[in-house]
Amino acid sequence: MDVIITEPSTPFPGSVHEVPGGGIVLSTLDDVINWARSNSLWPLVFGTSCCAIEMMSAASAKYDFSRFGFEVARATPRQADVIIIAGTIVNKMAPVLKRLFDQMPDPKYVIAMGACATSGGPFFYNTYSVVKGADHVIPVDVYVAGCPPRPEALLHALITLQEKIKSGLTRDQIRAQFQEDGK
């Protein structure tokens, strides 16, 4: 049987130049740093409501997000790189979330998991205490749809975040790139 070796979706950044006795890798330091950074993202254990259960599912045996470099869930924001907002953010929680975010060391990333964190979701209308989207409080990198999103969706979001980090681009640059591709 032929073994098909697929290219890793994002190989090590840089080009290899063959020289006698081995090879030399040429790359930029930025690329290497981003590559390393993206493959070891430590999430903060942060869940406010229902979506947190799906986040736990994603962490446990069947879905296992440690396969992608997310295994070291930290309980303190000072050691975390990425905060997964799993659940509704209400007015009383918003300052706390901001404070948690401020305590995280740079560079830091945010994933808004679920309809609530994205837009207030099911609690958009006629509620007096729900923040209509976590991006009113802190900047968000990746949004995940669903109520709650499946663990696979969260995995996809995490991989998307990795790609974003590897590309090293800002939100506007990514947007511009997309528009170019569209043309």
């Binding site: 007015n91 958009f124 209308y125 006629n126 509620t127 007096y128 205490s129 729900v130 209509k132």
Partner: peptide
């Protein structure tokens, strides 16, 4: 009679 035009979005 509670009304909160900022936080409450009425349908």
């Amino acid at each position: 009679d509670y009304d909160d035009p900022i936080n409450m979005i009425k349908l």
